[in-house]
Amino acid sequence: MLKIDGITKTFGKGTINEKIAINDLSLDMDRGEFITIIGNNGAGKSTLMNCISGVFPVDSGTILLDGEDLTRQPEYKRARHIGRVFQDPLKGTAFDMTIEENLSIAICKNRFHGLQPGISRKDREYFRERLALLEMGLENRMNQKAKLLSGGQRQALTLFMSIISEPKLLLLDEHTAALDPAAARKVLELTNLFTREKNLTTLMITHNMKAALENGTRTILMRDGQILMDVRGEERKNMTVETLIAKFEIDNDRMLLD
């Protein structure tokens, strides 16, 4: 489904701040696979996602999604096949537009943006029905602006928006990190619900090793812009946070604390 072949990304090339954030990285993903990504700060996890989604171009290598070469496509074109949720809950919604207007922008991802009514009655009914799944009462607040929502509600909404157009690939960059524990649990629960229901191919960055091993079907550990470990199946099932730490000498306080 996703085929990343030898990509490299260097920031500040030729300056004293030169930093190889992604170093000749390759990754193959099957349809429906759910990879959790861990790694210490600066390992290149977010950069990997930004390379896939086209926030910036890669220096070399290729990225194929479902056979389509994304490597040179602009961000907005790739977005038609990719759903994204960022760490910052403010990044995912247009704050001064209503919940239903936000949803409508999300569902129209692969539709033509012309002079059709912004929201059709059919879409509105669909939103109401599906929003109820979030169990946050948002289905009764569809005419309220997104800026009135709490961080957890917003992130749940963003997650919902990211999957509503059934993307080929879902990218989640620490999407629960800015939330309180209860909201984080809820959003993670919804993540599992949605990805299973639509059998979405998913990449999820988390700094919580336990969550990384408990969710998804495969886990990779990144360090210095490369993949240090890649486990799935039996091997992954038998892996514990303790063995992981021992094996890879993980010294990241942030990861240990959780």
Binding site: P74, C108, K109, L115
Partner: peptide, 28 residues
């Protein structure tokens, strides 16, 4: 009426949040 169309929505969202607009497949 224009600002209530799909195109109008895209335009309004661009002033709000360009990241979200690009992530929604629209060229900001």
């Amino acid at each position: 009426f224009f600002l209530k169309t799909r195109l109008g929505f895209a335009l309004r969202a661009t002033g709000d949040n360009e990241d979200m607009v690009r992530a929604s497949g629209i060229s900001s």
